[in-house]
Amino acid sequence: MIVRTGAISFTVSGRFLLMFPALTLLVLALAWVALGAGLTETSAAERLAALRGEGMLAELRLPRILVALLGGAMTAASGMILQIVSRNGLADPGLLGLSQGSVVAILLGGVVFGLGPQALVWAGLAGALAVSLLVLGLGRGMMAGGGIVMVGLAVNIVLGAVTEIVMTSGDAARFARLAVWSRGTLSGVSNGDVALIAVWAAGCLPVLALLGRSLGPLALGHDTARAVGIDTRWLLPVLVMLAACLSAPVVAVCGPVSFLGLIAGYVARRLVGDAPQEVLATGMLLGAGVLLLADTAGRALLPPFVIPAGLMTSFAGVLVFLLAIAAERRLNR
């Protein structure tokens, strides 16, 4: 289907036109439910007041929901960019080690050097960039299948050991707090965190939208992309940097939420087909929805215990990972 509005015309698939609004409605409905979910009952009037920024809910639950939506979308976008760059549907900032790189840098920055939250994001960004260069560099030429994921997992193991050294250097209470954060959780989120994430989202997403057109040729292969006139020499590094910029602030606020990019990319491709821009938009919605769902379910399933959102996405993510890799193998056979 071709949409023409004045000077601009672009092609859109029918499935995308159907899916995108449906998913948007679903995510909004989920946010409405999440606003009411919890130990205390809340009326519709209270929830509406919270949306206007009044009352307790606006202080406690609203920032959490906003961070889940923004952070989920950003992590998912980061994962899908990595999937296009590495040409591997299994790529994800968590699996490739970017998140763990941020974690190590943030822990070192916070615990050893005592940096503030703003500076920690930059530290996390440096960590994510360093690891992405390392993993993509080492994994050059074996992007397909499990190869690059194995490299990422091995790097994850090394970084995990460094994380544990920093974490065990304090007392038990701090270990417990850091351990929860290092698995991904939204329980400590405040209004300041929303602002922090929103600034980074506002900076990154326009760049992503600008680069969107060149993603299509890139998905067909780097050589093909060059053949149609896309300068991959600068595009690929910019994309990797963008992926790091999208994942680092989320890690700084709620810890590494693994598998989100993997889940979002896989489900989005199932829903809307293969056009990268459509997959990206759908996947970001899905990422937002999945993280919000994981957090809300984690709060509501076993009260008074709160299951960290990172744990919930890990459970779902492992299943999707196995399904995705099985499907990919069957396709190649």
Binding site: G146, M150, L153, V180, L311, S314, V318, L322, R329, N332
Partner: peptide, 29 residues
Amino acid sequence: LIAGQGDRRLDVVLAGSMVGILCSSASTF
């Protein structure tokens, strides 16, 4: 489940890592 045409030896380790990730994050929780 994930066995296919790729390297069988990597498949087992990939599966093992996934199980390991699940178990260790559950025990941390």
